[in-house]
């Protein structure tokens, strides 16, 4: 009886085996055909061949010879790679080239493709092409599309850096529509021009947005922004206070020294760490005793940051302090590292 039960699936086994064999053979055929017709090496050599043409177009206003469709596509990829790294006249020239040769239009069309990866690739390339005409469609993608495309659009809007792009990026940061790392990087690509619209986000209800805004202002702003940042040292969120402290240090804001000294007594270790780091960047010698105290007594992260700041402010004094048995291991470590750096290799 049992044998009959087991015999039942025999047909199933045979059919499955047949299907597996067919699938294996099919895949093998695909592999062989792919190997034989593969364009990997041809693509590389075409890129090499077309590089001088691309350079002529980018730097000498050349038009380049008439090309086959495949070569034209490879040339466009090369040019977009160049464009992403260029500024000024050459970038504008390439923008015009993409427009006049229909590449811009083609990528804009692809933003309506049904496959997300195609839309994301198009959004990415539109940023590289450097034509501000792409900004409105990218803004639309940033607002409406799936996360993958939104991230690519954000990055490209940062590359374009037009007022319209900037506005959309700041709105996306406030709405947390794109991961903060991506939007932050896009705003950094825009440059100092991004500071003004980002400043109001220091008052955003979301701590994550306030912290990112403080971090960005520290990276892109100047000492004039210190006052608004200084107020954030009193923020209710520890991560905002920490980012504000680090940002003040990056800006070298001398006016913030007192606030930062107070922050060395903050209940959150991350804030004390940020404040200690900032005081080192500002380099105020009057902060030395307070930092030495933090370096000797505080927990690991703030103590380490304070010790590093001591070496930044006055390396000789830090080395002298390290000889005191009560200085703590972090001060000794920092003084020791400075000595290794100075020693002839």
């Amino acid at each position: 009886m049992l044998a009959t039960v087991v015999e039942l699936p025999l047909r199933m086994l045979q059919v499955t085996s047949f299907l597996l064999a067919v699938a294996s053979l099919f895949l093998l055929a695909v592999l062989v055909i792919r190997r034989l017709t593969s364009s990997g090496r041809d693509h590389e050599s075409a890129e090499k061949r077309l590089t001088p043409t691309a350079m002529a177009i980018a730097f000498e206003d050349g038009e380049g010879p008439a090309l086959s469709a495949r070569d034209a596509a490879i040339l466009a990829t090369l040019l977009s790679r160049f464009a992403a790294r260029l500024q000024g006249g050459s970038r504008e020239r390439l923008g015009e080239y993409f427009e006049s040769h229909g590449h811009l239009h083609a990528e804009v069309e692809k933003l309506s493709d049904r496959r997300a990866w195609r839309r994301a690739t198009a959004a990415y390339l539109l940023g590289d092409m450097g034509s501000s005409k792409a900004a409105p469609v990218l803004v639309a993608a940033l607002q409406r599309d799936v996360p993958e495309v939104r991230s690519a659009a954000a990055r490209s809007l940062g590359q374009l850096g037009t007022p319209e792009a900037l506005e959309a990026l700041v709105a996306a940061l406030a709405a947390r529509r794109v991961p903060t790392g991506v939007i932050g990087q896009a705003l950094i690509a825009v440059g100092p021009g991004a500071v003004k619209p980002v400043l109001p986000l220091l008052g955003d209800p979301e701590p994550e947005v306030r912290a990112t805004a403080a971090e960005l202002i520290g990276l892109l702003g100047d000492a004039g922004d210190a006052e608004r940042l200084g107020a954030r040292l009193e923020d209710s969120s520890g991560s905002v206070r920490r980012q504000a402290a680090i940002a003040l240090g990056r800006l070298g804001a001398g006016s913030a020294v007192e606030g930062l000294k107070d922050a060395l007594a903050d209940p959150a270790p991350g804030v004390r760490e940020g404040a200690a780091e900032a005081l080192g960047s500002i380099g105020d010698p009057l902060a030395f005793p307070l930092l030495l105290d933090v370096a000797s007594r505080d927990s690991f992260a703030p103590a380490r940051a304070a010790a590093r700041s001591l070496a930044q402010i006055d390396p000789a004094r830090a080395e002298a302090a390290a000889r005191d048995p009560g200085a703590g291991p972090h001060v000794v470590e920092v003084a020791d590292a400075a000595a290794v750096d100075l020693a002839p290799a």
Binding site: A3, L10, L13, S24, L27
Partner: peptide, 21 residues
């Protein structure tokens, strides 16, 4: 005697082909 030869062969062939695929 609990299993036919065809079944045994079919079983082996299937497991081998799955690995290959």
């Amino acid at each position: 005697g609990g299993l036919s030869l065809e079944y045994m062969i079919a079983f082996f062939v299937l497991s081998l082909l799955l690995g290959v695929l």
